[in-house]
Design a protein around this nucleic acid. Structure first.
Length: 745
DNA sequence: CTAGGGTTAG
C-alpha cells in the first residue's frame, strides 16, 4: 500500500472514531460508503470501527433498519475475507446480540473458523441479556468441555440467567467454581451473586454476601434494596436505603426505581426524587407513572407522563392498564391510538394490557378488532398475547373462540392451560373446564395451585362434591394446602356443595388465615343460615387484628339480614362507614334495605334509600319489594314494582316477587296477569336446574371406563353429568398407580 | 453487575 493510501486510511479511521464518540452510526455508514468508492481499500480495523459505532448507538436505532444494514456489512465482511479476523467477527456477533438478533449472532458464531474466549463470552452474555437463559447455561457447559476457563465476564453474564430461571442449584455450582478459580472477589461477580440468591429466594445468602463485601458500590446497595423489596421486606429495604444515605453513598435512578417498586409510600419517595434532583430521569418518571397508575391515580400518572420528553411505551402501558382496570374502554382505545401515532412499536406486554381491559361482552366488537390487530402485527404468536385473547373471549362467554385459540397454539405452557380452564369456569362452563383438565392430564402436563383453585371453583358451580373432595386429596398430596387461594377455594367449594362441616374443618386447619379466607368462612356461615356463627367468626377475625374490607361487611350484613338481626346489622353498617371508612356499594345498601324491610321498618328503609349517595338499582328496590311480600304490603309493593319495571323490565325476580305477593293475599287474577307479563318478556334465563352426582363409581368396570377415557381423549365432547366425574376419578387413580400408590387398582 | 409495563386464582 502506498504511503498516500496509508495516510488516507488513518485519516478515515480517526473520523470514524469521532462518530463512535458521538454515537452516530448513520454518519459512520455514509462515510464508509463514500470511502468505498475511492481506490483505497478498508481493512479489518475499519470494519471493527464501523461495528463499534453501531454498538455505541444500538439502543437508539430502529432495530429493523439496523439489522438490514448490519446484514449488508456482514456480506461485505465475508466477500472481503475480513470475517476471518476473530475480533471483527466477535464484534459483529456482539452487535447482533445488542440489536436482539439472537439467531443471527448464533449463525456468526457457528461460521467462525476459530474462536477465542472473548467470542464465547460475547455469545454467552448475549444469550443472557436477551433472556435465552437456558441457552446461556448450556453454552457454559459446552465452553467448559472445550477446555476454556471461566472468566469474570463469563460469570457476570451467566449468573443473572440462573436468577431469572429461579434456579438456585446451578447458581450455587457457579458460585463454587468462581471461588475455586479465585474470581469471586470481583465486585461485579459478588453483586451478580447477591442478586441471584435474592431472586431465588435465599435472602440469607444474599445478605451474607453483601455484608462481607469489602468494596461496596452503588450497585451493591441497589441490589440489596431490590433484594428485600422483591421478597416483600419493605421495611428492611427502607432501612437499607437509610444506611446507604448514612454511609453517604450517591443515590442514582436505579436506587429510586427499586424503592418505588418496593414500597407502599410512593408519595414519600416522590418527594425524595424531587429534592434529590432525580426527577428529570426518564426511567424515574416512568417508574413513578407506573406506581401512580397501579394504585388507580390516573390523574397523577398522566400529569407525570407529560413531564417525559417523549412518549414511552412502558408509561403508556401502565396508564392503559389502569384505565382497563377501571373499565374505561374509551380511554384504553384512545391511549392505544396515541401509541400508534407516536411511532412506538406495540409489544406483547402492551398488547395484553389492552386485551385485559376489555372485559364487558358489550365491547366484544372492540375486542375482535384488537384480535385482528394482534394477528396483523404478528403479536398473537406470543404465548402472552394468546393467553390474553383466551381470557378475553372467556369474559365474552365465547368459550368456542377461546378453545379454538387454545387448540391452535403450538406450545401450551401451564399458564395457558390455566387460562383456558379458569376461562371456562368463569364463563359458567365448568364442565368444559374439567374436560380440558382431563386432556391436560393425558398430555402429561402437571397442574399447580392455580389449576386446582379454578377447578374447585368449577365444583362449586356444579355442586360436584365428590370431585371436589378428590381435588382436596390432590391438594394434600402435593402440599398445596399452604396456598391462600387453594384454601379459600376449598372452603368455598365445601360451602357451595353444602358440606359446611368440611368447610369448617379446612378453615380450622389453617394456621394464619388471610383476609379472603376469613371472608369466605363468614359468607359460608351466612349462606347456610348460621348467622350467629358468622358474627362470631367476624369478631374472631377482628381479634386477629385483620382489617375487614367490603366483602367482609357484605358477608356480615347478609347474615344479619337473613337472621333478622336488625341491631347488629345497623351497628355493622355504622362501623363500616364511620370507623373503617369504606364507601358502601349497591350490594351493601340492598342488604340494609332488606334488613330494615324484613323487620317491617318501611319508613326507615325508605329514608335509608333516600339518603343513599349512589343511585339505587333494581337489587335495592327488589329487597324492599321482597319485604312487602313478607308483610303483605300491597300498595307499596305495587308502586315499587312500577319503579322496577321501568328500571329493568326483563328482571325475572320482579315478576316472581309480585306474583307471590298477590298470591299471599289471595289475588289470583293478578297472579295470572303478572305471570303472563313475565312470559311476554321471554324470561331472563333463570330457569333452575337440578342435578345429582353418580354415587359409588368404584363398582363400575375400570377397564371399560379406561377405554372410554382413551377413545374420547383426542377431542372435546360434552359429557353427561355422571360420566365426567367417573373419568376424573379414573385418571386420578391411574396417576396414583403411576406414582406407586396401588391402593385403588 | 442493580432497574420500569403483563397473562392464570377466592
Amino acid at each position: 500500500m502506498s504511503l498516500a493510501s496509508t495516510i488516507r486510511l488513518s485519516y478515515f479511521h480517526s473520523s470514524l472514531k469521532s462518530y463512535i464518540e458521538r454515537q452516530d452510526s448513520k454518519s459512520a455508514l455514509l462515510l464508509l460508503r463514500q470511502f468505498l468508492q475511492s481506490t483505497v481499500k478498508p481493512n479489518d480495523f475499519t470494519f471493527s470501527l464501523l461495528l463499534k459505532s453501531y454498538a455505541s448507538s444500538s439502543s437508539a436505532l430502529n432495530p429493523i433498519i439496523a439489522k438490514i444494514e448490519v446484514n449488508q456489512t456482514r456480506n461485505h465482511l465475508v466477500k472481503s475475507g475480513i470475517d476471518q479476523f476473530v475480533y471483527v467477527s466477535t464484534a459483529l456477533l456482539d452487535l447482533y446480540m445488542k440489536l436482539g438478533c439472537v439467531e443471527s449472532a448464533r449463525g456468526v458464531f457457528g461460521e467462525m473458523p476459530q474462536r477465542d474466549v472473548v467470542s464465547w463470552n460475547a455469545l454467552l452474555c448475549g444469550y443472557s441479556r436477551n433472556g435465552y437463559d437456558i441457552d446461556a447455561l448450556d453454552l457454559f457447559v459446552q465452553m467448559l468441555r472445550e477446555g476454556l476457563a471461566p472468566q469474570i465476564t463469563t460469570l457476570v453474564g451467566l449468573i443473572p440467567s440462573c436468577g431469572r430461571c429461579d434456579n438456585l442449584f446451578p447458581g450455587m455450582c457457579i458460585h463454587g467454581m468462581g471461588i475455586k478459580a479465585g474470581i469471586d472477589f470481583d465486585s461485579q461477580v459478588k453483586n451478580a451473586l447477591t442478586s441471584m440468591y435474592a431472586k431465588c429466594g435465599d435472602l440469607g445468602a444474599a445478605k451474607l454476601l453483601f455484608e462481607e463485601m469489602e468494596e461496596k458500590t452503588v450497585v451493591s446497595w441497589n441490589t440489596m434494596i431490590g433484594a428485600y423489596g422483591q421478597n416483600g421486606f419493605f421495611d428492611e429495604a427502607l432501612l437499607m436505603f437509610k444506611r446507604m444515605l448514612e454511609e453517604s453513598f450517591e443515590v442514582n435512578s436505579v436506587t429510586v426505581l427499586n424503592l418505588l417498586s418496593t414500597s407502599n409510600c410512593a408519595e414519600l419517595i416522590h418527594c425524595y426524587v424531587i429534592k434529590s434532583g432525580l426527577n428529570n430521569d426518564v426511567f424515574v418518571i416512568t417508574s413513578l407513572v407506573c406506581v401512580y397508575a397501579k394504585c388507580g391515580d390516573t390523574v397523577s400518572a398522566e400529569l407525570l407522563n407529560m413531564l417525559s420528553p417523549h412518549d414511552n411505551l412502558v408509561s403508556l402501558t401502565a396508564i392503559i392498564s389502569s384505565y382497563g382496570e377501571k373499565g374505561n374502554i374509551g380511554l384504553v382505545v384512545e391511549y392505544f391510538s396515541r401509541v400508534q401515532k407516536s411511532g412506538l412499536k406495540m409489544d406483547a406486554i402492551a398488547m395484553v394490557s389492552i386485551l385485559h381491559g376489555i372485559k364487558d361482552p358489550a365491547h366484544s366488537n372492540v375486542g375482535i378488532a384488537f384480535h385482528c390487530y394482534a394477528i396483523k402485527s404478528g403479536l398473537c404468536i406470543k404465548t402472552l398475547v394468546a393467553n390474553g385473547l383466551i381470557s378475553m373471549y372467556s369474559n365474552f362467554n365465547d368459550i368456542d373462540a377461546a378453545l379454538s385459540l387454545f387448540y391452535e397454539m403450538p406450545e401450551k405452557p401451564l399458564i395457558t392451560w390455566n387460562s383456558v380452564i379458569s376461562g371456562c369456569v368463569q364463563a359458567g362452563m365448568a364442565r368444559e373446564a374439567m374436560e380440558v383438565f382431563c386432556q391436560m392430564m393425558m398430555f402429561g402436563q402437571s397442574s399447580d395451585s392455580v389449576t386446582i383453585a379454578s377447578l374447585l371453583s368449577g365444583c362449586s358451580q356444579l355442586a360436584y362434591l365428590q370431585f371436589g373432595k378428590r381435588l382436596h386429596s390432590y391438594v394434600l398430596r402435593h402440599d398445596l394446602e399452604t396456598e391462600d387461594f387453594v384454601e379459600t377455594s376449598l372452603i368455598d367449594m365445601y360451602t357451595k356443595c353444602g358440606s359446611i362441616e368440611c368447610a369448617e374443618r379446612v378453615f380450622k386447619s389453617i394456621n394464619e388465615p388471610c383476609l379472603a379466607t376469613w371472608n369466605t368462612m363468614i359468607s359460608c356461615y351466612s349462606l347456610n343460615g348460621f348467622e350467629r356463627k358468622a358474627l362470631t367468626c367476624y369478631i374472631e377475625m377482628l381479634e386477629q387484628r385483620i382489617e375487614p374490607d367490603k366483602i367482609t361487611f357484605l358477608g356480615v350484613l347478609a347474615a344479619c339480614t337473613h337472621g333478622g338481626l336488625v341491631h347488629e346489622g345497623k351497628t355493622c353498617f355504622q362501623v363500616m362507614t364511620e370507623q373503617v371508612g369504606l364507601v358502601p356499594n349497591l350490594q351493601h345498601c340492598a342488604c340494609m334495605v332488606g334488613l330494615l324491610g324484613r323487620a317491617g321498618l318501611f319508613e326507615e328503609a325508605m329514608s335509608f334509600i333516600q339518603n343513599m349517595d349512589i343511585e339505587p338499582d333494581s337489587a335495592v328496590w327488589g329487597a324492599l319489594l321482597n319485604a312487602c311480600r313478607i308483610h303483605q304490603e300491597i300498595r307499596l309493593g305495587e308502586s315499587l314494582a312500577k319503579k322496577l319495571y321501568l328500571l329493568d323490565y326483563r328482571n325475572g325476580g320482579l315478576y316472581v316477587l309480585m306474583s307471590n305477593l298477590y298470591a299471599a293475599t289471595g289475588r289470583w287474577d293478578d297472579v295470572e296477569r303478572v305471570r303472563k307479563m313475565m312470559k311476554g318478556t321471554e324470561g331472563d334465563g333463570c330457569t333452575g336446574v337440578s342435578q345429582i352426582e353418580v354415587p359409588s363409581v368404584v363398582k363400575l368396570n375400570p377397564l371399560i371406563l379406561w377405554l372410554r377415557v382413551f377413545s374420547r381423549s383426542s377431542q372435546l365432547l360434552k359429557f353427561s353429568a355422571g360420566v365426567l366425574p367417573i373419568r376424573l376419578y379414573m385418571l386420578d387413580r391411574l396417576r396414583d398407580a403411576q406414582t406407586g400408590d396401588k391402593r385403588y387398582l
